[in-house]
Amino acid sequence: MSTQTIDSAMARRMVEASAIHGASIIGRPGGWSVMLKLGKVEKLLGTQRTDKPRMWRSLDTCMDYLRNELHIVRVDLLDATHYSDGDASRRPRQDASERMKRAHEAAAYDAWFREQVQASIDDPRPSISDDEARARFANRKTALRRRAQ
């Protein structure tokens, strides 16, 4: 089975070996993809572990990736013919909002809990020892038993 894409790790190695002779940014519904030229063959830059083209929603982030990750600083072609902002096939994940809400609640609880612990540590009132607390509780327990009889 021949692959239709090249993943980033392979593309990086090919750039280092000067095997990539050019790059084009191609507009697609929902974003931008990168076509790499290998001699007379062109292949899309793909995602890890799949044979699907890698997509960027922003042209800036696509170019930043090429420059910073693959060290490709020259683009031969920018084709926006089929570019559109939205992608009908891409649906937002329904659980993302709920997941973020739970994460914010957890962070808020963690901050509150840490404040409570720090306030307890910083409390200037003298704390009592375990033995003293047990003795006080035993006295209260004895007093309650006497009243109950």
Rank of each mutant, 00 (worst) to 15 (best):
T5D: 01
I6D: 00
A9W: 11
A9Q: 10
A9Y: 11
A9C: 02
A11R: 10
M14D: 03
S18V: 01
A19T: 00
A19L: 14
H21E: 06
H21W: 13
S24H: 04
I26D: 03
R28Y: 01
G30A: 01
G30D: 03
G31N: 02
W32S: 03
S33C: 14
V34R: 10
M35Y: 05
L36S: 09
L38D: 00
G39Y: 08
E42S: 15
K43Q: 05
K43G: 00
T47G: 04
R49S: 01
T50F: 05
T50A: 05
K52M: 02
K52R: 10
R54A: 00
L59N: 02
M63E: 00
D64A: 13
D64T: 04
Y65R: 08
R67G: 01
R67S: 07
L70D: 10
I72C: 10
V73A: 08
V73Y: 13
R74G: 01
L78T: 02
D79R: 04
H82A: 04
Y83E: 01
S84W: 04
G86D: 08
A88F: 06
S89N: 09
S89C: 04
R90P: 00
R93L: 13
R102D: 00
A107R: 15
A108Y: 11
A108E: 15
D110V: 03
A111S: 05
A111K: 11
F113L: 15
E115S: 13
Q116I: 08
V117C: 13
Q118G: 00
Q118R: 15
A119M: 12
I121C: 08
D122S: 12
D123T: 06
P126M: 06
S127K: 14
S127T: 15
I128E: 09
E132F: 07
E132P: 07
A133D: 07
R140S: 05
A143L: 13
L144E: 12
R146P: 03
R147K: 15
Q149F: 14
